[in-house]
Structures are given as structure tokens and as C-alpha cells.
Write a protein that binds this DNA or RNA. Structure first.
Length: 114
DNA sequence: GGCGTGACTATAC
DNA sequence: GGTATAGCCACGC
């Protein structure tokens, strides 16, 4: 796999995160066919230009915390973008139990076709 | 190749 | 709840 293909797979996985839901770096890596490479996802995001138009704000750490220092500007921006989609931070972290991106029957049961 | 570093994670106290 | 530790892997020096 070339680095270009890897980047494409990772970006595609990120773009597949539905609005109003979030995914951990490790989840994105897994969906991109790169299990165990959460750090690679972080590195690609860090290097990706804004023109990539990725929903990068939907990617966070496995425990629900954002990956930036709490007092940083990127942190504030990510929190704002998430809030705009209805994803609020509670105690400094996103309640992953509720907002995590899953494609299993849990979601279908909760907010699937009624 | 060694070593530190980092938008990471799981496990164990 | 918190800290510590180990594993992870790509990069740059």
C-alpha cells in the first residue's frame, strides 16, 4: 500500500463519519484497513490542509477527550464545531456512549427507521 | 540503526 | 477518579 493509498483510505473513513457522531482515531484507522495505527491517523490529520474539507472535528480520542490541549485554539474550534452538530462536551469529554459512530443494531434500535 | 517525539490506546494499579 | 507503563508506528535528526 502506498502512502497515497493509505491517506485516501483514512480520509475516506473520516468522511464516512455521520454528522452528529464521533469516532476515535483507532476506529478510523480500523475502518481504513489499518488496525492499530491510530497515531498514523493523527499524523495525517495534522498534515492535512483545510482544503481537504474533512470532518476532522468528529475524530477524538478513545476516551472521548479531544486531542488538543484544553486551552488551545484548535480545541475551542473543535468543541464549537461539535456543538454545532449537537455533540456537547460533558466534563471535558464527549459522552462516547451516546455519540460514538456505530453501524450496529444499537443505532438502528435507537434512531433507525421508525 | 538508535532515539525522541507525537491530533493514540489498552491495561494495571 | 488519577498516574504509570507498555505497545504502537511513522518521521526527523
Amino acid at each position: 500500500m502506498t502512502s497515497d493509498e493509505i491517506q485516501r483510505a483514512v480520509f475516506q473513513a473520516i468522511r464516512a463519519i455521520p454528522r452528529g457522531q464521533v469516532a476515535a482515531y483507532g476506529d478510523v484507522a480500523h475502518r481504513a484497513g489499518l488496525p492499530g495505527r491510530a497515531r498514523l491517523v493523527g499524523r495525517l490529520l495534522r498534515e492535512s490542509p483545510r482544503s481537504a474539507r474533512l470532518p476532522w472535528h468528529r475524530v477524538l480520542r478513545a476516551d472521548g477527550r479531544l486531542a488538543f490541549p484544553v486551552d488551545s485554539e484548535p480545541y475551542a474550534e473543535q468543541a464549537r464545531k461539535l456543538a454545532a452538530e449537537g455533540v456537547a462536551l460533558v466534563g471535558g469529554k464527549v459522552p462516547v456512549r451516546f455519540f460514538a459512530w456505530r453501524e450496529d443494531d444499537i443505532d438502528a434500535a435507537l434512531w433507525g427507521p421508525r
